[in-house]
Structure formats: structure tokens, C-alpha cells
Simulated assay, not measured.
Amino acid sequence: MVEYRYLGNSGLKVTEITYGNWVTHGSQVENDAAIKTVHRALDLGITSFDTADVYANTAAESVLGEALKGQRREGLEIFTKVYWPTGPGGPNDQGLSRKHILESINGSLKRLGTDYVELYQAHRYDYETPLEETMQAFADVVRSGKAMYIGVSEWTAEQLQAGHELAKELKFQLVSNQPQYSALWRVIEGKVVPTSADLGISQIVWSPMAQGVLSGKYLPGQEAPAGSRATDEKSGANFIKRFMSDEVLTAVQKLKPVAEQAGLTMPQLAIAWVLQNDNVAAALVGASRPEQLDDSVKASGVKLDADTMSAIDEALAPVAVTDPEETYSVSPKSRPA
């Protein structure tokens, strides 16, 4: 069964393999298949589920809510997010203003079919709204009982520090950050992780398999397999492009014997690698079919020895992105039009 970790400096435990429905529910996968996949996650011991209002323009939250209907609510940990445009995308249908946050949490709860979420996350940093306004709105969400904890996504070290200070003043807990992190994308290691560790903030990492590249299914010099993420604009083809060079794909193939030596599949190796970082509370995994989760959950509890970690570093060092300055380019400097 999947193991649990504490989320930040809090008493909340989450499954270290957390189910995320970014590119599947409401768009790529039919609802019946999505519901079956959520039920398989539950059968495998996953109790933590991550979504966002922007996924499939709110449809992903509705599908997740339907899939979790009838489950014991106290046995689940549900996360959602606010920031990106939803609905018709009007000027106040986005960002981290008080208006958008308070309206968005109500919409998310209705779609999810619950009175509260365990974790409500700022999906990006909003440069157009005073941080004090954003954090006060989050404090009110917590005080109203609509969220137990507050998290963020892709914030820089300095933004985390400033947000933590305001949260402390307002007497609520900022417990998590949700960045992209994998053996190919390590930009949080330089500043974000050390700062987070000092502040009692955990990482809930997305794309631990680098959008599937670390599964080894993409081969240098060959076309991407039909139906794979790299060929499907709905499932994040734009995100995977940065990893699709022959140089990267050749380096990834060097991990195959490393995984075999460790007794793991390549996807399991990729997920286990991010979980070796003590500041990581959970790795987000998605699935378009229930059986895909059977492989992913076997990464839970895996301890990679020093030789295996060194072999991964050696194989990917020439192509892994490590520059901490990359963390400053993720949040838009102005709200999306």
C-alpha cells in the first residue's frame, strides 16, 4: 500500500503518491474511464487527490467529485487550486484577488461535492494583486472552514518567504508548494527547496516522469508513439517539447539498466527518485487507464541506494536543467488575457 508523509510543518498526512487529474479528466479521458481510474487509485491505497478549477475549464473538478461520491470524506485528502482563467475568462475570472479567490472556492466546493478541501493552492503568483490581499483572502477561506490548509504552486524562494511571513501574521498555515520536479528538471533544488525546508513547507511535485519522457518510451531518432502525450495537444504536448531532443532521449535510455539493476521499471525509478528528496511530500501521478496506476504505486516506499542515485546523476547530468533562475520565469508577470 502507498505510504504517507506529513505535509509541511503540519499534522496532515498525505499519500506520497497522489493522484492528479490535470490532462485526463474532462478532456482526454471519458468520464466512465476517469471514474474507474480514481476507484483503482483508492483500491491501491491512494487517498490524496489533486485537481484545479482550470483543468478542462472546471470539468475536471466535477469528474473528480463524481468519482469520489459515496467515499468516506474523512478518509480523503482533496486539493484544488485557483489563479488561471475559468468560465468565460473575464477580467475578474482569474488571478488571486479577494473577489476571485472567494468566488472560486465556492465554485470548486460545489463541483467537488464537498463542504471543504484539505488544501487550497495559489496556482501561480499574481504580480497584479497585492500579496497582502491574497493572503488575507486565504486566511478568510481557512477561517470559514472551506479549506484546512493553504498551499501555492511554482512560487520562487522569495515569494514563499514573503507568503510564509504573512500567513504567520494572519495565523494560518502555508504548508506546500507545487512545482515541476524530476530528474530532468531540478531547478527547485538550488533555492526553493532549502528555503521551503527552513519554513516548514513541503513540495508536492508535478511531472516526476518529465511528462512521460523518463518512462523511456520515446526513442531518439524515432517518431513519438501514436496516442502518446507528445502527439496529443490536449494532454500537454507543448510541455513535453523541451525534453524531446535526441540528446535528452539518448541520455534517458541510459537509465534502463539502472532501473533493471534496482528491480524497478523506468517509471517507478523516476517517481522513486523525486521521493528520495526529504522536502517532497508527494509525487503527482496521472493515468488514462486504471492499470497504469498499478505500476506507479510500486515506487512508494522505495529507497534508492547511493550507487543508483549516482548512476542516475551521471546519465542525466549533461541534459538535466538545474538553473534556479528558471523558477523566476514560471508565473506570468501579468494575468493571462
Rank of each mutant, 00 (worst) to 15 (best):
205 V>G: 01
23 V>L: 15
14 V>F: 03
84 W>Y: 11
81 K>D: 01
262 A>K: 04
216 G>D: 10
176 S>L: 00
82 V>L: 05
284 L>Y: 12
293 L>N: 03
152 V>L: 03
47 T>P: 03
175 V>K: 09
138 F>I: 06
198 D>N: 14
305 D>H: 11
289 R>D: 13
230 A>D: 09
98 R>W: 08
250 T>I: 02
223 E>K: 12
250 T>Y: 06
307 D>F: 06
113 G>M: 11
233 E>S: 13
252 V>R: 00
71 Q>T: 13
298 K>N: 08
5 R>I: 06
318 P>C: 02
141 V>N: 00
153 S>M: 09
225 P>R: 12
298 K>A: 11
312 I>E: 11
97 S>M: 11
245 S>K: 07
155 W>T: 08
25 H>F: 15
292 Q>L: 15
243 F>L: 00
310 S>Q: 15
39 H>L: 15
36 K>N: 14
330 V>I: 15
13 K>N: 10
129 T>G: 02
146 K>M: 14
24 T>L: 13
170 L>P: 01
230 A>H: 11
106 N>G: 12
312 I>T: 05
180 Q>S: 11
136 Q>E: 15
192 V>P: 04
322 T>M: 08
5 R>P: 08
7 L>H: 05
264 L>G: 00
31 N>M: 11
160 L>G: 10
127 Y>E: 07
37 T>V: 06
233 E>P: 15
162 A>T: 11
67 A>Y: 01
116 Y>I: 13
179 P>R: 03
107 G>V: 09
53 D>Y: 04
67 A>V: 03
190 G>A: 06
332 P>R: 13
325 E>W: 12
136 Q>N: 10
10 S>V: 02
89 G>P: 03
163 G>H: 01
292 Q>V: 15
134 T>L: 03
296 S>W: 10
143 R>W: 09
154 E>D: 14
246 D>L: 08
312 I>Q: 07
116 Y>W: 13
159 Q>F: 02
313 D>T: 12
2 V>C: 12
272 A>L: 14
205 V>L: 05
195 T>C: 11
319 V>L: 04
299 A>F: 13
333 K>W: 09
75 G>Y: 07
221 G>Q: 10
93 D>F: 04
241 K>V: 00
36 K>A: 15
126 D>N: 07
31 N>I: 06
286 G>Y: 10
331 S>Y: 05
148 M>K: 15
305 D>L: 11
224 A>R: 05
196 S>D: 04
86 T>S: 07
